[in-house]
Simulated scan of single mutants.
Amino acid sequence: MRGTTVLPGEGNSGLPGEEGVPTHRLEVPMPNALPFAIGTFDTIGPMSRASFPHRHTFHEIVHVTGGTGRHVVDLTGFALRPPNLCFIAPGQVHHWEDVTGLEGSVILFTDDFLLDHPADRHALRGLGRRSWLELPDEAADRTARLVADLDGEYRAGADGFQGVLRALLHVLVVRAARLPAHHPAAAPPVPRTRPGSVAARFMTLLGGPDGSLGSVRACARQLGVCESYLSEAVKESTGRTPGELIRQARVHEAKRLLLRTELSVRQVAARVGFGDPAYFCRFFRRETGASPGDFRRGGGDIHHDHRLESIARARPPA
């Protein structure tokens, strides 16, 4: 993740009054934090319960344990009937309506955090299309324990906590994918990004085994559209350009290969679409702040502090 960053819940372009749908970026302050955060609605910040439509460049999972009102995702409204579990994928538009007494936990992370379980990217985007889940008694108890464990690991920051966080998140995603979807009483409007749309198909390409390797031109050709149309559709749907998303996917796959395989840097470069290893090294350092070698030697853990202090430390009562 790049270093021009803001804390979750603060500023950037996630505010109303800008052209188009505001976009909120989880660009946690590297080099001092993970691309992951968990906290309450209060500790994450006001954007976690924003009443105006906005989208994210990251994944958001919301575990609602109290409150009344509605949550609107891609123009479909869902009544709060806690406990609920909500999944919002990058690019989806959402906001809260007439909400009072909102309680629960908010989990924020980027695709970059899914190094150990890259297939979870597919599952999360599928959950984003279903979005709103009601939790039967047994599922509610299991979910509450998992979210509490995630929060505890994040706050404690003990040795190996990154791996534990990734494992717990994986279990949460897999179990959620087994649950039936909640369907609102009224027929939902057509969502902004339909599963078969050009933007959705582009995101599927990126999530596939070879998705990070193609250029914008190659992706457009594979989807049967021109580059300008692809750029317009993806920008409208996600708030980001196809080129930005391809770079992000390449970095994610390069990190996974560096940490989880014995491939040489030259081989990793070739796997993610770079014929020139030197250019790949410059690209990787520009995007991550570290060389491929340093990243591998540090086990992906090249910094000392990984949590957002304002969230990891519980705030004293007012």
Rank of each mutant, 00 (worst) to 15 (best):
M1V: 12
T5C: 09
V6D: 12
V6E: 13
S13P: 01
S13Q: 10
H24K: 07
H24A: 14
E27I: 11
E27V: 13
L34C: 04
A37R: 00
A37F: 00
D42Q: 12
T43D: 11
R49L: 07
R49H: 11
A50M: 08
A50Q: 09
T57S: 13
I61A: 04
V62I: 15
T65H: 05
V72E: 10
V72I: 15
T76Q: 08
P83Q: 09
F87E: 03
G91T: 03
V93Y: 01
H94E: 01
W96T: 10
E97V: 13
I107Q: 05
F109H: 03
A119G: 11
G126R: 06
G126L: 05
G128V: 04
R129S: 11
R129D: 10
S131A: 14
E134T: 15
L135E: 11
R142V: 12
L146R: 12
G152C: 05
E153K: 12
E153F: 14
E153W: 12
A158R: 14
A158G: 12
Q162K: 13
L165R: 00
H170G: 08
R175S: 14
R175P: 07
L179W: 02
P180Y: 01
A181M: 07
A185Y: 02
V198K: 02
V198L: 10
M203I: 06
M203Y: 01
G207I: 00
S212W: 10
G214A: 13
S215A: 04
R217E: 13
A218T: 14
G224V: 06
Y229P: 06
T238P: 00
P242S: 00
E244C: 00
R247K: 09
K255F: 03
R256Q: 08
L257N: 01
L258M: 08
T261N: 00
L263W: 06
A270Y: 10
A270E: 15
G273Y: 01
F274S: 07
D276P: 05
D276S: 11
D276F: 06
Y279D: 14
F280M: 08
C281S: 15
C281P: 03
R285K: 15
E287M: 14
G289N: 07
G289Y: 04
A290Y: 15
A290Q: 13
D294C: 12
R296W: 07
R296L: 07
G299A: 07
G299W: 02
I302D: 11
D305F: 12
R307D: 03
R307I: 04
L308R: 02
L308N: 07
P316W: 02
A318I: 11
A318E: 13
